[in-house]
Simulated assay, not measured.
Amino acid sequence: MRRLPIRSLAVLATVGMLTLTGCGTDTGDPSDTAASTGTGRTIRAQKVMQLTQVHEETGMTLLEGPTFDENGDLFVVDVTAPAGEPKVIRVNVEKKTSRAVHTDGRGAYTSAQFSPYDGRLYLTDYAHGEIVSLAPDGSDPRTFFSGKVDGAQMNPDDIAFDKEGNLYVSDSRGLSEGEAHGRVARIDRDGKKATVLAEELASTNGISFDVDYRGLWISELTQNRISYLRLGAKGEVASQHTAIRVDGGIAQTDSIAVDADGNLYQALHGRPAMVVYNQHGERLATVEIPALAEGFESATNVAITPGGTTAYMTVSGPAGGYLYTFDALAEGIRQSNGG
């Protein structure tokens, strides 16, 4: 989830698509890439479609949480959509159409992902510390989890499901105060038990299992780093270390996705781009939108087509909320489909 300006904290607390032009990737001449400097090649994403405009009530729009359903439709959330405006949007990327599937009077949803356990769509409500689920068609909203975890209210940002449907949630608690109170929490798939797995993190944001479900990659927004949490047999954290330090400049680390080869797609808030690393921390590529594109401030997240390599990236800013597409380095799996 991306960070909203301080004036929007009342809307949610510093959180952080309509003309498909094709799924092209322009990597340019290899001699023009930065491979020799260790920064990898440049992948040029192409515009798919505009989905939202800046909302007068909140002063911005912020698309997040792209995730595919079983039919191949893409769901995205608009974090800053006011009451009555579409907060969850379904996109048919083949027909280049979109429609609203959910709105309500209070939610500030920062991620979306389908559960492997019950098939419902799960949303994190950053502002209210809740996790909400919907039927696949957007109906039947339910509060899955609400309340404190180990005595403190969460600011749930992103979600990663394990194979059994238990939730691993990045908790950005302490972001607005600039304190390292971020956490990673595990919530049982029935929503009855929540446990803190890691704490004193720097504004936990992105979270994704690695390709083998042996550990979690998490991004820490205010330290521009990706940490790795190796898990034990019961889902507990067995070890933890800083894995990658992201040279983001004015940009900060946002959501994370992982492809079938184990590569990490690290989204950036403050720059409409994404950096790709392998599991050993080598920078493989930078995904950029065309240089002439203006009015974008972040590329918050990505979904890679399950079993394919077509990737869809959510991009937002004063110009509105858009989908951009590029060719991923490997096929999409559950770890690159929402979160």
Score class of each variant (00 low, 15 high):
His280Gly: 12
Ile43Met: 14
Ala291Phe: 07
Glu200Cys: 06
Glu331Tyr: 06
Thr242Trp: 01
Gly321Phe: 01
Ala328Phe: 09
Ala10Tyr: 01
Phe75Gly: 00
Gly28Phe: 03
Gly295Ile: 08
Asp254Ala: 06
Thr103Glu: 05
Ala238Trp: 07
Leu123Cys: 13
Pro272Ala: 12
Phe326Lys: 02
Arg214His: 15
Ala13Gln: 13
Gly24Cys: 07
Val246Cys: 06
Met49Ser: 14
Ala202Lys: 02
Glu199Ser: 14
His128Ala: 07
Pro290Gln: 07
Thr204Trp: 02
Thr19Met: 13
Gly59Phe: 05
Leu216Ala: 10
Val287His: 02
Thr286Asn: 10
Gly84His: 10
His280Ser: 13
Lys95Phe: 11
Ala13Cys: 10
Gly235Ile: 08
Pro86Leu: 01
Asn166Glu: 12
His181Asn: 09
Gly151His: 14
Ser227Phe: 04
Gly307Ile: 13
Thr286Leu: 05
Thr195His: 10
Pro272Trp: 07
Asp104Thr: 12
Lys96Ser: 15
Glu297Gln: 06
Ile89Arg: 11
Asp150Met: 09
Gly151Phe: 09
Ile207Arg: 03
Arg334Pro: 14
Asp162Arg: 07
Thr25Arg: 09
Lys96Asn: 15
Thr242Tyr: 00
Glu94Asn: 15
Gly249Ile: 08
Leu134Pro: 11
Phe209Trp: 12
Thr124Val: 06
Thr21Ala: 11
Val237Gln: 07
Gly308Asp: 15
Phe75Pro: 00
Pro272Glu: 01
Met1Ala: 13
Leu323Tyr: 08
Leu12Asp: 07
Gly339Met: 03
Asp69Phe: 06
Glu282Asn: 04
His128Ile: 00
Ala108Val: 03
Ser115Trp: 12
Ala185Tyr: 00
Glu294Arg: 13
Gly308Phe: 06
Glu57Leu: 07
Thr310Arg: 14
Ala243Asn: 03
Leu12Gly: 15
Ala81Arg: 04
